[in-house]
Design a protein around this nucleic acid. Structure first.
Lengths: 190, 190
DNA sequence: TTTAGGAAAGGACAATTGTCCCAATAACCC
DNA sequence: GGGTTATTGGGACAATTGTCCTTTCCTAAA
């Protein structure tokens, strides 16, 4: 749900201690609501969240948004487009204020080639995304909204203060109306 | 849906022309119904499908199976467990007869380290899985069974001769009953 | 050809979720 | 404060999907 990757963030921050990399890896701040990446756009950079929470979502032809993940500190995005050589398939938008690191695709590709630690963390990060998605979608498809919500609540006690309800509904792939029903029914059962 | 990766298969077959690798990369045949990998088991090898179709699926606590993907020629599995260092989160079972290549985790890790082409294809393969999953689950969540089925039918004209209905239903995350309804309703609308 | 067994399809009803809209509440501006 | 406008939550009904069980169809053996 709120994905983080401390190892990756750690490595990026270590690299930035070298002054050479400070020009390649730039830091930028964002505020809540900022659109960091648009869907179906050319992607020139790889992004690493330093602080704050963003959402990565996809807008369908029906007008419905589906939230892929919420990205917290250390989470990487814009990297898939290097390897698949296509336009962005998700939009990324800030939920809270925060900051991120940015590296151009060409610089990142070069770094990947030279730096074995980074290369390995990249493989780990991608593998983790594959695994996480597999497990989450399987669970979501096999259970009703109430059960899915219960799972999230147990993982994030303060979920309603972290994520707006609308985004939560779009993450679960249901309407806000239905999410409200599930919330009420969980409240009653306590 | 039926994922293939000719580039990856090509590279593996080229490597196997070198007699050194023929001992590391072994070939095995399978027949329909064979269980190639069990869920929640230790994974010792990376697998590459050479011929045939397998399904990769996850069994939930409810007893429901959810099919992640169908793997055709070139598709890799068992690799995520190298990077995430955990037990298998999916089972893999043969749908048709076929054959696959197998490499031990340690040999594969070493190959990844030495062979840049393989390293790059591995990154591409993982990125492709992430992207494919993102797009598919977003679409599936945002549309009803009939629309989801229509999408599959348009991509695979002969889908009902390739994949058993039960597996198709588990791929879409619905019951067979509901899949039948969707099939009928598409038939009527022609 | 007949018949029994098993798999596949579909009918009937229940549960879940979506859509639409109205009421309650909060926010804001004169 | 009064009045207006957003925002949020929930009621009512419709559509979709799940569950259960019956019917149909296919196969194979006698």
């Amino acid at each position: 749900m709120i994905r983080i990757n401390k190892e990756f963030l750690g490595l990026i921050e270590i690299l930035r201690e070298d002054s050479v990399y400070q020009n390649l890896i730039t830091e930028h701040s964002f505020k809540a609501g900022d659109v960091i990446l648009e869907q179906n756009s050319r992607v020139y950079d790889v992004y690493i969240v330093k602080k704050g929470i963003t959402k990565c979502y996809l807008t369908e032809d029906t007008g419905k948004d589906f939230v892929q993940e919420f990205f917290g500190p250390g989470e990487v995005f814009g990297e898939v487009e290097i390897f698949s050589e296509t336009y962005s398939f998700c939009a990324v938008e800030a939920i809270t204020e925060g900051a991120l690191f940015k590296i151009s695709h060409s610089d990142f590709a070069e770094l990947l080639d030279r730096n074995k630690a980074l290369n390995w963390l990249m493989l780990k990060s991608l593998a983790s995304k594959v695994k996480y998605k597999a497990i989450r979608h399987s669970f979501n498809q096999s259970h009703n909204t109430e059960t899915n919500l219960k799972r999230l609540e147990s993982q994030y006690k303060n979920i309603y203060s972290l994520i707006p309800k609308k985004d939560l509904a779009n993450y679960l792939g249901v309407t806000e109306r239905n999410l409200n029903r599930a919330i009420n029914s969980l409240k009653e059962s306590t």
